[in-house]
Every structure is written in structure tokens, then in C-alpha cells.
Simulated assay, not measured.
Amino acid sequence: MNDLRIGLVGTGGIGRTHIERINGRLQGGKVVACADPAGAFGLSVAEKYGIQGFENPIDMINDPGIDAVMCTTADPYHEECVLASIAAGKYIFCEKPLAPKADACKRIVEAEMKAGRKLVQVGFMRRYDAGYKQLKAAIDSKEYGEPLLLHCAHRNPSVPADWDNSMAVENSMVHEIDVLRWLLGEDYATAEVRYGKPTNNGPKGLHDPQVMILTTKSGVRIDVESFVNNHNDYHIKCEVVCDGAVLNMPQPNYISVNAKAVTGQAMYTDCFQRFADAYNDEIQAWINASKEGRVDGPTAWDGYACQVAAAAASKARETQEIVPVEYDPMPDFYKG
């Protein structure tokens, strides 16, 4: 195969960023067509980038000129897009979440198993970040003993005006839900969410910051702070307390800035700056694997497992109680 011919569904901000990333910086693939649930808008984006436009996303997915699909739509459209790609026998990269609800994720899992081969990768880009990969290697080496506690934080300078209390878990800490499960190599047993004293930076009635507490099956205790209106910077923290060491994820190399009579470091203000290399590595790996006929990133089962834990954490937020995380047994199809 020459370039992997990619059809992109969902031409909002991240979709357009992926078009520019794939067609301008990465190797082995090209976005050759796009579509959007808002048909006319998708056609206008296609014209802007000089690629083929489809008014109907399903028509694009089924077109023989498309080898693989990328789904970057709003969350409610993910299930339809992914199921259509599976039915067409095409590899699909779906930005997180795989679907908004665990039962929808389960339908995707069942469709993929029925198709008889893995076709779905979920866009959990933190697994491709150099810092998280270093932590993963250190934990897996067993050199520092077993992980006992994790202290994590996910901070944003601000969020959109329509942000509500549910989004701290479902749009922000969902990244930690996936990457920490991957980091430790085990599922969660319980989830709870507690509120901090609300900041004056956010709208009235918004509980910000929030703290999610997860306990794994083996008893590892995890706390994750979500503070999405800190009015300062975009900052990700992960500290792993082990039997014989404390492991801290390395921070990016910020430039030093002299400004306004102060010497300090410039810091990132959004995830696209902080995880730029991870996004590039993630999509490049997906292109390479798709051309070679395999999925080697986060699977549909990972997408399901994440939404089960997120649903438990959301229920815990609403009830202010500890909630069990209850998964279906993992099918053999996804083991190994």
C-alpha cells in the first residue's frame, strides 16, 4: 500500500488539526476526504483543504477510495461512525470517548468481535507521551517495588462557558482514568469524587476543583485533582509512590523568559501544546499499524473499560458516596 487514504468525520477544531498534522507533518497517510454531521460545514472544510467532501459521513466511510477512517465528531456521533467503519471492514481511529455511555461501547465491542478482527483504536493520546512511557517502563521493571499510591493533577487555565460539574470527570479526568489503568496494568475496584472549596474563578454553582479517588483491584489508591479554572496554566502531574522509591513524571522543558522585571518559565496553556508530540506519535503509530493490518493502540475494550469507570465516578460525584466499578469479563478476543 502507498499512502493510507483516510476519510475524516467531524471537521471541528481537532478534526482540522488532525488534517493539518497528517497531511503536513506525518508520513504514510493522507486525509483525502472529510465529512461532518453538519453536511454543508464539512463540504466547506473539504474545499479549504483541497480534499474530497462528502455531505453524508456514512457515504464517505463506505466509499472504496477510503482505506481508513478517523472520527473526531461530537461524542454522540461516535457510535454510528465506528459501527459503520466496522461494517465496512475499515480501520478506525476514534477520539475519546469511544462512545458517551458504556452500553454503547459494549455494542461496538460486540460488533468488532463479530467482524472477527480488531479494527478500532481509541484516541487516548497520553499513552504516547514520553513522560508517561518513562513511568510505565519504571513500574514494569519492578526495580522500585510495587506502586502503592498515586497523586495526580489535571489543571486548566479556563474552560468553556457551558462547562458543568459532570465534565470534570467525563471530559477532563477521563484521560487519567485510562492512562492510569494502563500505567498500572489493572482495573479499578471503586471510585469516589469529592469537592474542594469552589474557586471564585468559575461560574456560580460550578464545583471546581474536584478530587477523584480510585482504588484498583489490588488496592493501589489514586487521587486525581481536577482544577479547570486555575487562571494560570495547563499542568499535568503524576507521582507514583512505590515500596522503594517515589517516581515523578518529568515535566516538559519550558523556555526561560525575562519579562515585566521577572525571570521565569513560560508554561503551556492547553493540551495541544503540552501533548503535541504525543498526538503526533499516536496518529503516526495508528497509520503505521493500519497499513500493516493490526491495531496496537488503545482498543475498543479499553474504551469500554474507561466509560465503565467514568460512569462509576460520575455516580459517585452525584451521590458523594464510594461506588463500585463493575466490568463485564474481558473477552478472550481482547486479551494478550
Score class of each variant (00 low, 15 high):
Ala104Met: 12
Ala104Asp: 14
Cys105Asn: 08
Val109Glu: 02
Val109Tyr: 02
Glu110Lys: 08
Ala115Ser: 05
Gly116Trp: 07
Arg117Lys: 12
Arg117Tyr: 03
Leu119Gln: 01
Val120Cys: 03
Val120Phe: 04
Val120Ala: 03
Val122Met: 02
Val122Leu: 07
Gly123Ala: 03
Met125Lys: 07
Met125Gly: 02
Arg126Thr: 06
Arg127Ile: 15
Arg127Trp: 15
Tyr132Lys: 06
Lys133Leu: 15
Leu135Ser: 01
Leu135Lys: 02
Lys136Cys: 06
Ala138Gly: 04
Ile139Ala: 06
Ile139Cys: 06
Asp140Tyr: 04
Ser141Arg: 07
Lys142Trp: 11
Glu146Asp: 12
Pro147Ala: 12
Leu148Asn: 08
Leu149Thr: 11
Cys152Trp: 00
Ala153Met: 00
His154Tyr: 11
Ser158Val: 12
Ser158Met: 11
Val159Leu: 15
Asp164Cys: 15
Asn165Ser: 09
Ser166Tyr: 07
Glu170Gly: 11
Asn171Asp: 12
Ser172His: 14
Ser172Val: 15
Met173Ala: 13
Val174Trp: 03
Val174His: 07
Val174Met: 13
His175Cys: 01
Asp178Ile: 03
Asp178Val: 05
Arg181Gln: 08
Leu183Glu: 00
Leu184Met: 03
Glu186Tyr: 00
Tyr188Gly: 03
Tyr188Ile: 00
Tyr188Glu: 03
Thr190Phe: 02
Ala191Ser: 04
Arg194Leu: 12
Tyr195Asn: 14
Thr199Gln: 05
Gly205Tyr: 10
Leu206Asp: 07
Leu206Cys: 06
His207Met: 08
Pro209Leu: 06
Met212Tyr: 10
Leu214Lys: 05
Thr215Asn: 06
Thr215Arg: 09
Ser218Gly: 07
Gly219Leu: 11
Val220Glu: 01
Val220Lys: 02
Arg221Leu: 11
Val224Thr: 13
Val224Ser: 11
Glu225Gly: 09
Ser226Ala: 15
Val228Glu: 09
Asn230Trp: 00
Asn232Leu: 07
Tyr234Phe: 13
Tyr234Ala: 06
Tyr234Val: 01
Lys237Thr: 11
Glu239Tyr: 10
Glu239Gln: 15
Val241Ala: 06
Cys242Pro: 00
